[in-house]
Design a protein around this nucleic acid. Structure first.
Lengths: 347, 347
DNA sequence: ACGCAAATTGACAGCGCTGTCAATGGCTGC
DNA sequence: GCAGCCATTGACAGCGCTGTCAATTTGCGT
């Protein structure tokens, strides 16, 4: 049979309850006692039985990460970060893919909770901003932390200063001499889309360039939507000299469409993305983009949640720094005006 | 307070133990009784308490998915499939990234097990073939199922007929008239690399084309290694007219390098990959590749494991079908010989 | 040295379920 | 109709831990 708490107690010459106190890092245990117990635990290689702990304390020591996001790279980074934080405090994590637009979305989350009883939830975009869910969680007292939520009021988790990142990207383009800069908006349900657009507009304004609605087209964060958006842009009578796409996948789509239209990148048109996902280095030319520390963000969001769950405070909304990664897809504005050709076929 | 098993028992007019029997689908409960209990459960919306079940039965109703794989797309598919299967039988899943080459790899798995006590493990490549781990799991009686293991003897889980898929890809290239076909091998620790190479060689042999070692270069499944491999191939005095890369990322690297060397794809050289990951549609030209039903494979592997855990049999090694996806990156062999130029710069 | 509050420790009864084993009921063959 | 046997059901004692609350010890002021 494996070592139980009772065995540790006997070895340390204290009561089981005291061992339990040490295990749970409770206050009001004398330093000397604490050390004795810790030593006994280590010597016997004691591992508390999670189910027994859960049953007695009515907590599961588990958090659930909820997602509805097509970007597996982003998610796996977040997930890894969350696991980092969980390991730190001996929590476990479950993951749950959901359809945020499903009729029974909130109900499904409710079922998840009643089945698996996580102590708290980690929400990722776009679930972070599903009002129905947030209300339900509030009403039912379910603790949660968010990664990059739109609404920052009374929310704990992690965010990045997205508008500032977008402005920094715009400054890079403006610095290269670009004035006719297009923007491909992301999926409307994601807060990131709005912030990045806001940064784009603010930078234009600051640079004294009038906002031109025909240079701003909607996408949905997918490669295909980038292609579609770019086709619109490249069919304008006066082409943009730079395209700022709200994420890397769409930027890749823009580059694809540029090639398809006989436009060289960055010769004829500069293209940049956002997120620094692997695709940014897997295409040619490699994408200029903004690096988001996703794993770190997952970790921090989870730590905020765990602070709450462990009764270590209220948790807060932490803001993390970003990095502009300048690669080959952006370059100086070139003098003559480029012309798009119809569509290139087989070559 | 929530509904407990005892409440259901009272409502159904039976003993708690009988409700437990129905809950666990045990034999030797009269049909009528079973129905009464089921009705009461449904009426009261009863959810068994996982920790209580675990504590009493000494099972966790949880499986752990172990991975050390850089491809988040592949993994997230597998993970989703595993979750599908878990949901079906009310199991939960935890995920664990690991470094298969770490000194303490097996020890870490042992710690994972003693901490979280999963009932079984799901192994993904390349962990599926870590002999040290497999031995340890065997010695300690830990049930596991594998996704695409190399060794198929006495292993349960799921595989695909990879050599046959590779042969089918080769037949596609041969059918397009290619004779000088190169192969970029995958990471040596993955069984897939060997199988795909084997299929390549078998097809050449069958077509009566001698094996040319200079056309076979090693990669490691990464984009960068595809670029490096392609540079070697494109520096040969006689270029290959087609390159069969062992996965999509490397194929994308080959296409990148082709562009970099002034070679048109598929005009000068056809390129194909394997796995049908999103990148295959995110590059231009879109990749001809082999689609592996990863999600389904995750689901099936997990179902085999659950069969064992639930005492429903021994589990087996299931083989799933693949699909050849012909896209734009492969085309007929062209007559004249292409010449690579040194390296293209800014354009 | 003494009294008192605060800090520390322990006794005990579950948490909600299942394993074990005994008790009951129903059915068989003669 | 009855012994014998299997199918079905239930009683009960935990599984390994923590919450509650009471008992004990410690520290401090005077």
């Amino acid at each position: 049979m494996r070592v139980r708490l009772e065995d540790v107690a006997r070895a340390a010459g204290v009561s089981p309850k005291t061992v339990s106190r040490v295990l749970n890092e409770e206050a009001n245990v004398r330093q000397l006692t604490r050390e004795k117990v810790r030593a006994a635990m280590a010597a016997m290689d004691y591992r508390p039985h999670p189910s027994a702990r859960s049953l007695a304390s009515n907590r599961s020591f588990m958090v659930a990460t909820l997602y509805d996001n097509p970007s597996s790279n982003y998610l796996s980074e977040i997930q890894t970060g969350v696991l980092d934080a969980c390991d730190l405090h001996h929590y476990s994590m479950m993951v749950r893919p959901l359809l945020v637009n499903a009729e029974d979305f909130v109900e499904r989350v409710a079922m998840l909770i009643s089945h698996h009883r996580p102590d708290g939830l980690l929400l990722t975009p776009p679930i972070t901003d599903h009002q129905g869910l947030l209300k339900w969680l509030g009403d039912n007292g379910v603790p949660y932390a968010s990664v990059s939520p739109i609404a920052r009021h009374r929310t704990i988790g992690v965010t990045m200063d997205e508008p500032r990142a977008a402005r920094e990207m715009m400054e890079h383009l403006l610095g290269l001499g670009h004035r006719r800069i297009a923007h491909v908006i992301g999926h409307p349900a994601h807060g990131a889309s709005g912030w990045r657009l806001a940064g784009y507009r603010e930078s234009l304004e600051k640079a004294g360039i009038p906002y031109n609605p025909s240079l701003v087209v909607e996408g949905d964060f997918s490669f295909g939507s980038g292609v579609t958006a770019a086709r619109k842009l490249f069919s304008l009578s006066e082409l943009p000299t730079a395209v700022f796409a709200a994420n890397d996948d769409m930027a890749a789509g823009v580059i694809w469409a540029a090639g398809d239209n006989g436009l060289a990148v960055p010769g004829d048109v500069s293209v940049c993305g956002f997120d620094d996902t692997p695709i940014s280095r897997q295409i040619w030319p490699a994408l200029t983009t903004i690096r988001q520390p996703s794993r770190e963000m997952g970790r921090i969001a989870c730590l905020q949640l765990l602070d709450v769950l462990r009764g270590r405070g209220e948790g807060e909304l932490v803001q993390v720094p970003f990095t502009l990664k300048v690669r080959e897809s952006t370059g100086p504005r070139r003098q003559g005006q480029a012309r798009a050709r119809q569509r290139r076929s087989g070559d």
